[in-house]
């Protein structure tokens, strides 16, 4: 895996991690086969790298897959470790990778789910399956602007409520919204109002 992946052209912005399929001598855990059978089309790609299994799940089926993985006896992923996202702006078909890191306290194994999501595309919230996802999804919304449907409390969590933009996006400047805000807030407000006016017109 040390070589650069072949499908990423040199000197271009990266379009996503390679997600290599499992090598021939690694057998997939049984719950992946059960998931294939229980939710047809629920997994579009299976990847194995550095001992981690990653399943790519279509956005429309995330709730069914989550429900199955929590309830099936051979999976029993009852602990939602983390929900986060990665922004890949050059990708035309889907800008965000929403990543769920799951753990099973019964079988002590892990899996990662990955949903590839377009910029305006909503995603069903998994708070009904794992209440732990509540704040984590709020953070993904705050930092990336991913819209979760069915979330009980969809507010920003780390940034102020009236903040503009989503800081973890790759096109968001590191220095923040600009120096004008700090140096001359009145001018900044005027500029923002004129922009809003232009938007309305």
């Amino acid at each position: 895996m040390a070589d650069a992946p072949a499908h990423v052209p040199k000197a271009a912005a990266p379009t996503g991690p390679p997600d290599p399929p499992p090598p021939a001598d690694v057998t997939a855990p049984a719950f992946i086969a059960t998931l294939h059978a229980a939710v047809p089309g629920g997994v579009t790609h299976v990847s194995y790298w550095l001992g981690d299994w990653t399943l790519v799940v279509p956005a429309a089926l995330i709730l069914q897959v989550a429900q199955h993985l929590r309830d099936a006896a051979d999976a029993a992923f009852d602990f939602c470790s983390d929900v986060t996202a990665t922004d890949w702006p050059p990708r035309a078909e889907g800008r965000f990778d929403v990543v769920y890191c799951l753990y099973s306290t019964r079988h002590r194994h892990r899996v990662r789910l990955k949903v590839i999501l377009g910029e305006q595309q909503p995603l069903a919230s998994v708070t009904g399956v794992w209440p732990a996802a509540g704040w984590l999804e709020r953070e993904v919304y705050d930092m990336f602007g991913v819209g979760f449907t069915g979330h009980p409390d969809r507010r920003r969590i780390l940034m102020p409520e009236d903040w503009q933009g989503h800081p973890q996006r790759k096109d968001y400047p590191l220095e923040g919204p600009g120096e004008l805000l700090l140096e001359n807030p009145i001018e900044w407000l005027k500029l923002r109002q004129s922009r809003e006016q232009a938007d309305i017109e």
């Binding site: 895996m1 040390a2 790298w49 470790s81």
Partner: peptide, 23 residues
């Protein structure tokens, strides 16, 4: 190398995990 991984350790407060993507 390009790829992503999640690794967790037990901090005094609980499960401290890092999810890192390298291009």
């Amino acid at each position: 190398p390009a790829g992503e991984t999640y690794h967790a350790i037990e901090s005094p407060k609980g499960e401290l995990g890092y999810f890192i993507v390298s291009d």
